[in-house]
């Protein structure tokens, strides 16, 4: 049953050592959850970026909460490299599970179907594959001749966290065409969602909205967090605040600069 919650209470679902899935910067990142997660302080997290990471990943790494990062890329987009992530890589402070976008999607798809793995083309001959002990090459059993193919094990996050425009009071969540959010939710045990607003009407009652809904069945808790993706943008709602992302990129070049940025009075969305 969905619980109407608030970000600080939702952060308590995260326990040390959990595997946490986070969406790509344009799909709906719950930046509103970042500080509550850091305040809550559960560490040794294994992050899964679906399929790439940015600001939120950099801040969780900078706060020292992250053990491994499974991702196809981490960057701040136009603002450049992710400074705390890059520093942690250089120091060997986080373990990397470098991937490629469709491999992350394939792992979630396997979990969605309750299958142990999903085969994926490509990858053979890459150093990604060479460094991934959990990916296996098998011979396609359905081919006539030899046909090597990579198996990607199911990715089953403990927690998925994202931000979308709205939920209804029954816990149904509007994800529009950002279907990767559904894939993450299907694969995860716990799903925490922040929203711009909570609406009265049942989103499943109208066929037009129902097609873009993640049903409450998959949703653990919802919290209202206006401008909750800021400084990222939210599709259909508001654009990214690139000046603020650039300000962070500059500040977080050093560990001290990062701490000072994060210690500022609660950031108020512009």
């Amino acid at each position: 049953m969905m619980v109407l919650s608030e970000p600080r209470a939702m952060a308590k679902h995260i326990e040390p050592g959990m595997r946490v899935a986070l969406p790509v910067d344009y799909a709906g990142v719950s930046m509103a959850m970042t500080r509550p997660i850091i305040e809550h302080g559960a560490g040794d997290l294994d992050l899964v970026c679906v399929p790439t990471g940015g600001l939120q990943v950099d801040q969780l790494v900078g706060a020292g909460l992250v053990r491994t990062v499974e991702t196809s890329a981490v960057s701040l987009g136009e603002a450049g490299g992710a400074p705390r992530f890059n520093a942690a890589v250089k120091e060997g402070a986080v373990r990397l599970k470098d991937a490629t976008c469709p491999a992350i999607h394939a792992g979630l798809m396997a979990a969605q179907k309750g299958s142990p793995f999903m085969p994926l083309r490509g990858l053979i001959g890459t150093d990604l594959l060479r460094h991934r002990g959990d990916w296996r090459v098998v011979d396609n059993p359905l081919a006539d001749g030899s046909d090597p193919i990579v198996l990607i094990p199911a990715i089953k996050p403990d927690v998925t966290i994202f931000h979308v425009p709205m939920a209804d009071r029954f816990g149904n969540v509007w994800i529009g065409r950002r279907r990767e959010l559904a894939a993450m939710a299907y694969a995860s045990r716990t799903v925490l969602v922040t929203v711009e607003r909570i609406v009265e009407e049942n989103l499943l009652a109208d066929e037009m909205s129902a097609a873009g809904v993640l049903p409450a069945l998959y949703v653990t808790a919802v919290a209202r967090a206006p401008k909750g993706a800021w400084p990222y943008g939210l599709w259909g709602e508001y654009p990214p605040d690139s000046a603020e992302i650039a300000r962070y990129a500059k500040a977080a070049r050093t560990a001290d600069g990062f701490s000072a940025y994060m210690a500022q009075a609660q950031m108020e969305p512009a």
Binding site: A99, R121, G122, L128
Partner: peptide, 10 residues
């Protein structure tokens, strides 16, 4: 460190 491989490996 650069961002990462994105979808290139596929």
């Amino acid at each position: 460190r650069w961002p990462g491989s994105f979808g290139s490996a596929y």
